[in-house]
């Protein structure tokens, strides 16, 4: 089973990197960009086959390491 974990900054948390990307996109001529928020993606390969077990394990990984839940949210997508 594979899990894709997407970690994003919580709304309201300042993202200077995202702002710098907006500036760079504008300088390339892209217009109409209301904002960019930078995040992270983790692809986790698991030897578990049970979906519920896999989800529980990945959730635990997110809480303990992959995300800093003070400033970040995470989302988990599972696929076999």
């Amino acid at each position: 089973m594979h899990a894709r974990v997407t970690v994003t900054l919580k709304p309201g948390v300042l993202d200077p990197q995202g702002q710098a990307i907006v500036g760079s996109l504008a300088s390339l001529g892209f217009s109409g960009i209301a904002g960019v928020r930078q995040g992270k993606v983790f692809d986790v390969a698991l030897d578990k086959t049970d979906r519920a077990q896999a989800e529980a394990a990945v959730r635990d990984m997110c809480e303990k390491l992959l995300a800093n839940t003070v400033i970040e949210n995470y989302a988990i997508e599972l696929r076999t």
Partner: peptide, 17 residues
């Protein structure tokens, strides 16, 4: 210490980058 949860809050990238 913040990452370990021994102090509250977090240290993010400098605002100036």
């Amino acid at each position: 210490l913040t990452e370990a949860g021994m102090l509250p809050g977090v240290l993010m990238r400098n605002a100036t980058l």
